[in-house]
Design a protein around this nucleic acid. Structure first.
Lengths: 130, 130
DNA sequence: TTAAAATCAGTAACCATTACTGATTTTAAG
DNA sequence: CTTAAAATCAGTAATGGTTACTGATTTTAA
């Protein structure tokens, strides 16, 4: 993977936000810096970067993928109302290990891991606390 | 929701299999009994049935949805090689409640639940046990 | 400096799914 | 049983996120 101005800009934008943008949102924002960039380039580089484990691709219920430059072990909350994705700063590594172990016991398949997606209504859509 | 021969056939087929078929697979199988059924009808009824909680829609990593007539609380294993979906007969209700409680503590969002998807290589693709 | 490899912008194609059409079937009241 | 409104159908076009293709441009490394 060579360097390219476009890919660097995409990576820079993703690294500087915690909003877990979609490909379309990445395109809109990078376009402000590099107006000639094309949507195809954004998709291709998001695919390249996620295939190379430099960013995380987050599948959501509405079928639109979101992206995250934070590759540390952490979890996500998906708002079923607005579709936004939020970080959850909690350590679940022990729980995940336990789940994988338990799952391995009830199947002949080789369980390599599990994805955990939290969902509900975000504080922005329906504020509940001051 | 009235009755219709087509919807009953789709429901019957789903109830009689544990293979978690895709819309295309449902279409292929129901077509053997009702050759005139159209793919659009299958999609429309799968949507109707899942919207009415009579079946479960399972999102998978490859972007193709799978369906399950078993609406009991249970979990799924997705094979990253062949794309098949398997049931996991394990009781995780206590773990899920704990996770939701923990997640609620680290966010202002209203956490309503979480989806847990296991993945790996199935015994059909790479046999490991007799 | 230069040529091969990688990447680009632009756009067409892909594919799962949904929406639209006029015809047919189902339901429920008379 | 009729019969008319509502639901559903088959067939097909449209949608929308994503990927693939093109010839031109940029990057890399010798």
């Amino acid at each position: 993977m060579n360097h390219s101005r476009q890919r660097d800009l995409i990576m820079d934008y993703l690294s500087g936000t915690k909003s877990h943008p979609t490909a379309e949102e990445v395109y809109e924002n990078v376009s402000r810096v590099e107006p000639n960039i094309s949507l195809g380039t954004v998709y291709r580089n998001l695919k390249l970067l996620s295939d190379n484990k430099m960013i995380i691709r987050i599948h959501t219920q509405d079928g639109v993928d979101h992206f995250d430059a934070d590759t540390r072990d952490h979890y996500h909350f998906y708002c079923t109302k607005c579709g936004r994705v939020y970080d959850l700063e909690m350590d679940m590594s022990a729980t995940v290990r336990k789940l994988v172990r338990e799952a391995s016991e009830v199947t002949d398949c080789r369980v390599e891991g599990c994805m955990i997606y939290f969902h509900g209504i975000c504080n922005n859509c329906e504020p509940t606390r001051g």
